[in-house]
């Protein structure tokens, strides 16, 4: 065991993993995290605690992760290269490990121009690939980036993200291989709407044998309405939403029926994605709609979550 986290144990036991996303508030109100943690505890194996998501200032991911853990939800602490240099990223991971946080997700981070402080200096001292390698070296070689020894190394389960729908498409699986070579343990994909394209990417991933080296979690976002589907299709960078999905959402009455349809699509997609060879789990990103997650997980036949020792 690298970290002994619940997520790692689920994978080690050969179980299909389920993770969700848990966004900290734009305030000092830790109860928001406490409530979300209670909602998701036992429903998923672990949850991502986002780190200034979309470059908007929020309650920090380390403290939020700690609050989640205290309330029964295993955190996957996100760490972006946008806001910290290599000193801060190493210091934070030592602190997180000291708090008992075991899962870490290494991200370059959304560009600052998308957020609420576009005047901020973007750090980008490292990129996500370099961050993965630095944390792996901290854990396995017990060394800091400068080469100095760490007396008590952090025990980490290292994750990252990958977008199968970005360009150049021919390089996306190869870029995952770079991350695997850097030492990543699990990956979560950008949310999938275009299943045929995802399957094509997975073919390339399997051809490279990566599914045997890293746990691949298919990312998915339940749609709350047709408006959201259209917005994601047209305005969210790196998103590939087929017209058929937008039309299917729009064909249903607004409000409750559309929400139900969104959940139904999510459940169908989970079932289809779970059948894809090499997919080891699903990551549900219900943006500000965490309340829908328990129902979706149950309807997909993934409840209750297995207990692993």
């Amino acid at each position: 065991m690298k970290s002994g986290s619940n997520l790692e144990k689920i994978f080690s036991a050969g179980k299909f993993a389920v993770t969700a996303e848990c966004g900290p508030p734009k305030s000092a109100d830790g109860n928001v995290i406490v409530d979300k943690a209670k909602l998701l505890s036992g429903v998923v194996d672990a949850a991502n605690i986002t780190d200034n998501q979309t470059a908007v200032v929020r309650l920090c991911s380390m403290v939020s992760a700690h609050l989640a853990a205290d309330n029964g939800l295993e955190p996957i602490m996100q760490m972006t290269c946008r806001d910290r240099n290599r000193l801060a990223m190493q210091a934070d991971i030592l602190g997180a490990a000291a708090l008992g946080i075991k899962n870490i997700l290494c991200l370059t981070g959304d560009h600052g121009s998308f957020g609420n402080h576009p005047q901020a200096k973007g750090v980008f001292d490292l990129d996500s690939v370099q961050l993965i390698r630095m944390y792996k070296n901290m854990r396995d070689e017990k060394i800091f980036d400068c080469g100095e020894e760490i007396s008590v190394a952090p025990q980490l389960y290292i994750g990252c993200a990958e977008n199968p729908f970005a360009d150049p498409f021919e390089f996306r699986a190869l870029r995952l291989k770079k991350k695997v070579n850097a030492g990543v343990d699990f990956i979560q994909t950008q949310c999938i709407f275009n299943i045929p394209k995802f399957k094509k990417w997975m073919e390339e991933v399997r051809a490279l044998g990566l599914h045997k080296e890293v746990k691949i979690m298919a990312g998915l976002t339940p749609l709350k309405g047709a408006g959201m589907a259209k917005y994601m299709k047209n305005f969210v960078p790196g998103m590939d939403v087929p017209d058929a999905i937008v039309e299917r959402m729009a064909a249903v009455e607004k409000g409750e029926p559309q929400q139900a349809e969104g959940k139904k699509i999510a459940v169908e997609m989970i079932k289809e994605l779970a059948e894809v060879e090499g997919v080891a789990g699903v990551h549900i990103m219900a943006v500000e709609w965490e309340i829908a997650v328990p129902e979706i997980v149950a309807a997909a036949g993934l409840s209750p979550r297995p207990a692993v020792a």
């Binding site: 121009s113 370099q130 970005a166 360009d167």
Partner: peptide, 21 residues
């Protein structure tokens, strides 16, 4: 590169363009 990546491209590369304007 908007993020000065040393190991790009990131997930925001689309049709040869950066996600940042």
């Amino acid at each position: 590169c908007s993020k000065s990546l040393m190991n790009g491209p990131c997930g925001g590369s689309h049709a040869g363009l950066c996600e940042v304007t």
